[in-house]
Design a protein around this nucleic acid. Structure first.
Lengths: 349, 349
DNA sequence: TTGTAGGCGTTATCAG
DNA sequence: CTGATAACGCCTACAA
């Protein structure tokens, strides 16, 4: 073990004690095959004795890279606080990055100005080698700028193509998304297989891409099975238990009422389920319910909620790997990767 | 807007265009009051035109600090994944750190070897300026080493003092913890106020500090109110819904059965509550239940669960601020800070 | 008040 | 194969 404070052990000190030049120490450190075996051993043993570890700051300056990935979340900390999505995301990114010697720097941008500031602070200061962006907005200004700068970045989640100038060919940004259309189709087919014919769809706010994509999958599934699309079975709602309950109440007034419901979110599904129960319906016998996200809540409600699990770990792993590939100059194809979801059957359907 | 790629704008370029020396550019950047106003303006306008931002890597090397805080989580990513505690923790740290120009680097250590590796990787490489440690184990070897190195760090959560050598006075590590004793006392008193006299305690595994501390608070509260301590009302359990159910079943066999239960954890509390309901007990009329952590689950169970909310944001803020104080050489007193918890009343008690 | 020059710890290019 | 030496971009004595 080192006797000096680690902070004070530099290649210089190693070199002195091993009676070689500092350059040789560097060579040994970088496994230069041309160093004499005896010198190498001498250097290694001194390094070991002093507990030498190279200074990442100096390496960063010299190599012009920090081995740090940035994750920017643009959401207020309070909104972030209890969202398990972020734990899962961060955990998987760290894991994947760590295997390749990268670290993760997480930042949050509270305001729009804050977004800008974060972007400056991480990218332009070259504090990180690349960026993972989540929940980017449609026509996000940052995407164009990052592209223009040639700065490595990967998007998680769907984004909408901005205005494209015909004459300025833009490279498609690298992105990873879950298969919302496919997931909704799968869940709907699952309900149809189990005998449902009038399946309701409870979406989030109507404008959201995720609401639209999953509606597409839902519609595709029923039409594929010869069930006509009935707009009275489609309701949009805010994301809350009350929202789900109201949506359900509305669906129950459509005649004839649905025999199943696909909700965009577990909380919506739970709200819907409870409303149906208040109306005396037994679940799953009289009404089957499927939610989305497979949150811990699912196991705790009565009956336990069948839910579509987004593969967050898969998403994070893929995004991280692609970012590292980008940083290290490898080609990333295809630019857009879709990660499938899976259904977790419980008792509600 | 800059016309060159940002990466290529250094103080050198600014200096050339503004016809001053590079040192002057640096001075302007650092608000040196002695620079001539005209030069300052010239420099500023060139900076602005080129969109100059200083390189954090060079600053880190030069200043010997990175303005990066490290958070090390030693838990498997899968165990981390759906734990809202970490979202909350990370969100609050980022928020507090960001206000002072610091960023957060999150790392996870899967194995014991991994812990060591992370420690090396973050600390000895000087990649971060200080460390926040959570869930440190009793007599954590790392604590001694960090202390010996004089490396700034703050513990979140209780730790046990290691072996102390009488002759080597050790400085108490800086730590922040929630008031487990006080929180349990408060929750117990709340139950007593509401008329309960036979209050059960469902702990986690018996060895855990948190189990012991809260038992202390529980016992203190009842004895203070003249209720004798009855060991038959104290049960230890693993952290799971089944564990809670089993513990409840056991308590119900004690004669006379409890009229309230304090559980170490919301999941345990929910397990207990369900078991009691299966035995036909009405909650809160015949049995009151209080949990810990105020997780999102509380609002979704029937009846909604009264729970003690740990002030994670407060914990994180305090820890972050103390770490920054430590890094910047300010004195931090007291070394050990206790953050109070609060009760969130719902319908179960 | 401004410029010159040295150094932070590393890596990499030269000669020797 | 090894040792000087020059960057990397920034900050800051010290000199002018």
């Amino acid at each position: 073990m080192g006797t000096k404070r680690i902070a004070e052990v530099r290649q210089r000190e190693i070199a002195q004690l091993a009676r070689v030049s500092q350059a040789t120490v560097s060579r040994v450190l970088n496994n230069d095959p041309q160093v004499n075996e005896e010198l190498r051993q001498r250097v290694l043993s001194v390094m070991d004795a002093l507990g030498y570890v190279p200074d990442a700051r100096a390496q960063s300056l010299r190599a012009q890279r920090t081995r740090l990935l940035g994750l920017v979340i643009h959401r207020a900390p309070s909104a972030l606080a209890y969202d398990p999505f972020f734990s899962a995301l961060i955990a998987s990114i760290i894991d994947q990055a760590g295997r390749q010697g990268y670290h993760l720097c997480v930042d949050a941008a509270r305001t729009v100005r804050g977004q800008r500031a974060i972007y400056e602070e991480l990218l332009r200061t070259r504090r990180v080698d690349g960026l993972i962006l989540v929940e980017s907005e449609a026509r996000d200004e940052r995407i164009a700028r990052l592209t223009a700068e040639g700065f490595p970045f990967v998007l998680i989640g769907r984004y909408e193509q901005g205005v494209r100038h015909k004459n300025i060919p833009q490279e498609e940004p690298c992105s990873v998304d879950n298969d919302n259309v496919g997931a909704a189709r799968m869940a709907t087919l699952y309900l149809i297989e189990r005998g449902c014919r009038r399946i309701g769809y409870i979406g989030g706010p109507a404008g959201l891409t995720v609401t639209r994509d999953r509606l597409l999958g839902y519609r595709d599934a029923i039409e594929r099975c010869g069930i006509p699309y009935d707009p009275r079975l489609v309701v949009f709602s805010e994301f809350s238990e009350q929202g789900g309950a109201r949506a359900m109440a509305e669906l129950l007034h459509s005649a004839p009422p649905p025999d199943a419901v696909l909700a965009l979110d577990d909380v919506l599904a739970i709200g819907a389920m409870r409303e149906a129960q208040r109306h005396g319906l037994r679940i799953p016998e009289q009404l089957k319910v499927v939610g989305f996200n497979d949150t811990p809540l699912c196991a705790f409600v009565e009956p336990p909620l069948t839910s579509v699990a987004i593969d967050i770990a898969g998403l994070a792993r893929a995004a991280t790997q692609r970012l590292i590939d980008l940083i290290e100059g490898r080609v990333v194809e295809p630019r857009r990767l879709i990660v499938p979801a899976r259904l977790v059957p419980r008792e509600s359907a």
